[in-house]
Design a protein around this nucleic acid. Structure first.
Lengths: 240, 240
DNA sequence: CCATGATGACTGTGATCACAGTTTTCACAA
DNA sequence: TTGTGAAAACTGTGATCACAGTCATCATGG
């Protein structure tokens, strides 16, 4: 695999994931982005990342290129790679697309969802609510649960390509959404989000497409409003 | 740039496009795919392609990876790269998404389109119709005009991310759509397509979103019906 | 004539290096 | 202290090579 004597590469850590190195780098970056563990505007270095993952630059570059193609990363004219800072305009466009696509997915899911899937969503909703009602909520876990809830819903629509497109959108808004969630002192979101989630679950149980869509739309719109209000976008009215 | 004495690489052909090598490879592949110049199931070799383009495998691999990420190419378990053969199911899913997304774009475009853009679309429509009414229609040109017509429409919706997503869908169905158009002895398509295009232009001129969407939907549905009827999909009822 | 096995030409992947920039840093002078 | 400039350390990119695996070809033995 390595022409030289596998000098710098860690073979020991390879056992962590049996997949290819490029896939591992991609998964890592995706997790960073949609988990909001990187801030918008932050620089990403191929070599640094490669060293951190115990890989060479080749698979890392492959992953970065893919993400850049989806708009989840940008390469500046300098060719430097950064996490993009969304303009208000771009953010609104993505929100519109989310309403269209995730709304459609919710409608279909309401018709096609299985009992098992509904149970999974219900469990996620419960855990999410509990996390936010806790004294010291764990942001990482809440983000993860929110994602689980949404994507089991989307997968229930039985349209893999649609799910993939939605994932692409989440990848782009992940940093701002979760930057927000981290900055948020307490539960600016939880109120509306928890309510919307509850309505969603109830609509799914009733197999009511319209209500499912409405509930999801409320969730999306609330999150969007919050982000815009906090001024995390490029038209930065960040007060301080 | 090249560590060795730039042995195999052609520096002479580089003047063709000033962009990076990876971008050139990507553009080439995209053109092949959405132009339908490669057949579904056809194999793609990195080294062969690199040699054809006068590049090394690195930029070609980058391009292939991106396309594979979008589903426009697939890597088999053998790791061999091929143009995917769409299953009927996948094709129907993409058609559904096209109706949703391109339909939405058409609605917005009907409201936002400028006079210049409308003129461009009108011109494309005229040229497209003439091409099909010709004695010996030029398939390549017809495909190109069709694409021009659709995408100036989508761009008129002023949602770059939406346009990008639609491009991704076209990339995946390009091979079958145009394989069809090449196989098609004459104008199975032209009738409905030309009619739909005409209705589209008229709706745009009237700035009527609903009619624009309906006309576009008719176009998409007609193309989908044709592909399914010809049995170009994975549930291959290919008679011979 | 057909089955079979070995060899050789392919496949993509990953590591490494050379390169051309850009950015940062840091020393030196005004 | 502040400007200025040179150098060093970084940035991504592309080419090349070593590798492991698959596939096809073809010779050989039945």
């Amino acid at each position: 695999m390595t022409p030289a004597v596998e000098s710098g590469a860690r073979r020991s850590e390879q056992a962590a994931s049996s997949a290819g190195a490029a896939e591992r780098a991609l998964a890592h970056l995706r997790e960073m982005l949609i988990g909001g563990r990187v801030a918008p505007g932050e620089a990403v270095s191929l070599r640094t990342l490669a060293r951190a993952l115990g890989l060479s630059v080749t698979p890392v570059r492959s992953a970065v290129n893919r993400l850049a193609a989806e708009g989840a990363l940008i390469v500046l004219p300098n060719r430097a790679v950064r996490v993009p800072v969304l303009s208000a305009e771009t953010f609104r466009e993505i929100t519109t697309l989310r309403l269209l696509l995730e709304g459609y997915a919710a409608e279909r899911a309401a018709e096609l969802i299985t009992r098992t899937e509904l149970q999974a969503i219900t469990r996620a909703e419960l855990a999410f609510r509990r996390e936010y009602e806790a004294d010291r909520p764990d942001c990482d876990r809440a983000v993860q649960l929110n994602r689980l809830l949404h994507f089991t819903l989307y997968r229930a629509a039985r349209m893999p390509s649609l799910t993939a497109i939605i994932e692409g959108l989440w990848l782009r808004i992940g940093p701002v959404l979760n930057l927000d969630m981290r900055l948020d002192p307490r539960r600016l979101r939880s109120g509306t989000a928890v309510r919307a989630h509850a309505r969603l679950v109830s609509a799914l149980a009733a197999r009511d497409p319209k209500r499912a869509r409405a509930a999801l739309a409320a969730d999306i719109r609330a999150a969007a409003r919050r982000v815009e209000r906090l001024g995390l976008l490029d038209g930065h009215a960040s007060r301080d």
